[in-house]
Design a binder for these strands. Structure first.
Length: 446
DNA sequence: AAACTTGCCAACCGCAGCGTT
DNA sequence: CAACGCTGCGGTTGGCAAGTT
């Protein structure tokens, strides 16, 4: 017990992953799924232990990962969830699509803890530091109530502090879909952030006597929505194959930034969230996120139907996307829905349970046929969408994507900045097309 | 410019839990 | 029922880069 058996094996590489290793692992999992992790390194030709492969996949290579800095909403949510769940990072991560437990843990340890302390709040108990010093309450129910109250106060503090920034942000964020991917019910043009946070707070506050129940709901949601132990078919089901094939994040929010700062695509393209099943697959209905989707534009519509007790959502969309990316291109690309969307790219989530309360957050996704991808591919395929948006060739875009992910492609020396937010920006010309072609060839892209 | 400090984050380690034999 | 193998989780660490002295 304890030490993983594969760790005993000798000649296993440790430390940072090289591009070649990443490529091998990505190609293998894309093709075969991971199956038994302990056999992955052998099958993929890697000198790594299965554990290391698993970690690399989960924390870095998974196609549904978000990149970039955490939004204020995400930070708020993490604080709220931490107040309820404590250091259960995996469960917290389950409520933040595209974020890994490791990422959240790092954020908590490096930033959020500090922020809370600066506000006089104990990051462990989520109580005022003075109160913590004075001793603990005895009544558990009172504890829960206090905790929730403090959470609310924390949020108020956070919100007050960043209100100026928020106002500016809100003006640029017409989407009712929060950056963390939860669709919000928006009435009129009111603040989606405020709506969201208030919704959470209200529910937390009203369920203070059901703290355990709340936790259970989180746990249930997490367990039922786990996608880590997936086989190839499942994997494709969760992430369209053509999406998996991309080395870059599947979340368009990070594709275009060239500054290393996160570029909130959600504010510009609500549909980017809609089209990412993983972004909406984990709706924590237990804390007040309603499973209804309301879109700001008539261009996007959703309809639902129930099958076997789960509610499915179908989307159709016509998106007029005006590129205002940093390239300055003003080209407008109209991407229209077609029947192929529903046939091949129907995305559906079992968000509501149609009366049965036991099951929630089931994920259903109709697989798309690679050869029949039309406009939908633009959305789920970072290169094509990006190219469309910026009126660039996919390869140009890929250069930027690789630049963003700091994939330095000196294949001989395998320089591989491990920190995705570290390192200097490389020009497109620095990112050689060789790797792009290599990856494309490996994954069947031309 | 060099030395030092700090912050961040990818990756490792050890453990618990579960399933299988 | 014990031993073993595997997976997943949370704590911790090592190293890089940026900032400071």
């Amino acid at each position: 017990m304890g030490r993983h058996s594969c760790c005993y094996k000798q000649k296993l590489r440790k430390g940072l992953w090289s591009p070649e290793e990443d490529e091998k692992l990505l190609r293998h999992i894309t093709k075969y799924g991971h199956g038994c992790w302990s056999s992955v390194p052998k099958q993929a030709g890697l000198q790594r232990c299965g554990k290391s492969c698993r970690l690399r996949w989960i924390n870095y290579l998974r196609p549904d990962l978000k990149r970039g800095t955490f939004s204020q909403e995400e930070e708020d949510l993490i604080i709220e969830l931490h107040a309820v769940l404590g250091n259960r990072w995996s469960q917290i991560a389950a409520q933040l699509p595209g974020r890994t437990d490791n990422e959240i843990k790092n954020l908590w340890n490096s930033c959020l803890k500090k922020k809370l302390r600066q506000r006089g709040i104990d990051p462990v108990t989520h109580k005022p530091l003075s109160e913590v010093e004075n001793g603990e309450d005895k009544d558990t129910e009172a504890k829960s109530r206090d905790k929730m109250s403090v959470v609310s106060n924390e949020l108020n503090l956070l919100k007050a502090e960043s209100s100026m920034q928020e106002e500016a942000l809100l003006e640029q964020r017409p989407s009712p879909i929060a950056p963390h991917g939860y669709p919000l019910e928006v009435q009129g043009s009111s603040s989606s952030r405020t709506t969201n946070s208030r919704s959470i707070n209200n529910n937390l506050m009203t369920s203070t006597t059901n703290n355990d129940f709340l936790q259970d709901r989180f746990v249930t949601s997490h367990q039922e929505s786990s996608t880590t132990n997936c086989q190839p078919s499942e994997l494709v089901g969760h992430f369209p194959l053509h999406q998996q094939l991309n080395y870059a994040s599947s979340n368009p929010a990070q594709w275009f930034t060239q500054s290393g700062k996160s570029f909130d695509m959600n504010s510009e393209f609500a549909i980017s969230t809609i089209l990412s099943p993983t972004n909406t697959s984990l709706l924590p209905t237990s804390i007040g996120y309603k499973p209804s989707l309301t879109f700001p534009s008539d261009n996007v519509s959703m309809s639902s139907f129930a099958v076997n007790g789960s509610r499915y959502w179908e989307g159709s969309a016509t998106a007029n996307i005006n590129s205002n990316s940093s390239s300055g291109s003003s080209s407008s690309t109209e991407l229209q829905s077609s029947s192929s969307l529903l046939e091949n790219c129907m995305f559906s989530w079992g968000l509501a349970d149609c009366g049965t309360s036991d099951k929630e957050t089931q994920i259903h996704l109709t697989e798309s046929q690679p050869e029949d991808i039309k406009w939908a591919e633009y959305f789920s395929h970072p290169l094509l969408m990006a190219a469309a948006l910026q009126n660039q060739t996919p390869q140009c875009l890929y250069n930027e994507i690789k630049s963003e992910t700091h994939l330095v492609t000196d294949s001989s020396s395998a320089v591989w900045p491990h920190s995705k937010q570290q390192g200097s920006l490389q020009s497109s010309s620095d990112i050689c097309g060789k790797d792009i072609q290599r990856l494309a060839a490996a994954f069947g892209h031309t």
